[in-house]
Amino acid sequence: MKLSDGVEQAIHCVVMLSRLSDDGVLSAAALAEFHGVSTSYLLKHLQALSNAGVLQTLPGPKGGYRLAKAPEDISLLDIVLALEGPAPAFRCHEIRQRGPNPLPAHMFVEPCSINAAMLRAERAYRAELKRVTIADILADLTEVDDGSIAARGCAFLALHERKSGTKA
């Protein structure tokens, strides 16, 4: 299974936004700069996250993005589904019923065992993504950080965080 680059970018942006003050926001340009990615590409993903209720968008000159929910209420599955959509990665097209000399329809009453196996794997994958929250990612990051990662993020936020005047 291959997820788009936008999924990685979106998860990192949500983690960054989780470190804002209560009335803070970050612009898409600032998020793109911090992660070294295209602003125009990132904007599509931020909009998808906003549409899914993961992010809140504040318009205007002091506007930007912030979390719409607490980090413990945002799962990796929420982010993946916002960007990739709800369709399963594997889609069975019943090719076993094609080709020369197809078998009669009664031979295909049971679902394809390949499709069944792939859907079981998809359920396991989604269950794991649902289990892991942004709060878990932050906790894991804290365990491995010698202070360098936090210092880099704090220094960037000190320069780029905007105060919206409204609390999240």
Score class of each variant (00 low, 15 high):
residue 101 N to E: 13
residue 21 S to Q: 14
residue 106 H to D: 07
residue 115 N to P: 01
residue 91 R to Y: 13
residue 115 N to E: 10
residue 77 L to D: 10
residue 46 L to H: 04
residue 107 M to E: 15
residue 30 A to W: 08
residue 149 I to V: 11
residue 135 A to P: 00
residue 112 C to N: 12
residue 3 L to V: 11
residue 130 K to W: 05
residue 66 R to T: 04
residue 167 K to S: 12
residue 58 L to T: 09
residue 139 A to G: 03
residue 99 G to Y: 03
residue 19 R to F: 04
residue 71 P to A: 09
residue 50 S to Q: 10
residue 93 H to K: 15
residue 79 I to N: 06
residue 120 R to Q: 09
residue 48 A to L: 12
residue 157 L to Q: 05
residue 162 R to E: 01
residue 58 L to Y: 04
residue 110 E to N: 01
residue 75 S to D: 04
residue 148 S to D: 10
residue 66 R to N: 00
residue 43 L to F: 10
residue 162 R to S: 02
residue 69 K to I: 01
residue 153 G to I: 13
residue 56 Q to N: 09
residue 31 L to R: 00
residue 6 G to V: 08
residue 7 V to P: 12
residue 107 M to N: 15
residue 79 I to H: 05
residue 92 C to M: 05
residue 101 N to Q: 14
residue 113 S to A: 12
residue 106 H to S: 12
residue 9 Q to C: 04
residue 34 F to W: 05
residue 74 I to Y: 00
residue 96 R to D: 06
residue 136 D to G: 11
residue 24 G to R: 03
residue 28 A to R: 03
residue 118 M to N: 15
residue 148 S to E: 12
residue 55 L to G: 03
residue 43 L to A: 14
residue 22 D to S: 13
residue 139 A to E: 15
residue 132 V to M: 07
residue 52 A to T: 03
residue 159 L to P: 03
residue 49 L to I: 06
residue 153 G to T: 11
residue 8 E to L: 13
residue 56 Q to T: 09
residue 40 S to E: 13
residue 163 K to H: 11
residue 37 V to K: 11
residue 4 S to A: 08
residue 68 A to W: 02
residue 101 N to I: 01
residue 14 V to T: 09
residue 150 A to K: 15
residue 115 N to V: 02
residue 126 R to N: 08
residue 148 S to K: 07
residue 154 C to E: 07
residue 97 Q to Y: 14
residue 73 D to F: 07
residue 64 G to D: 05
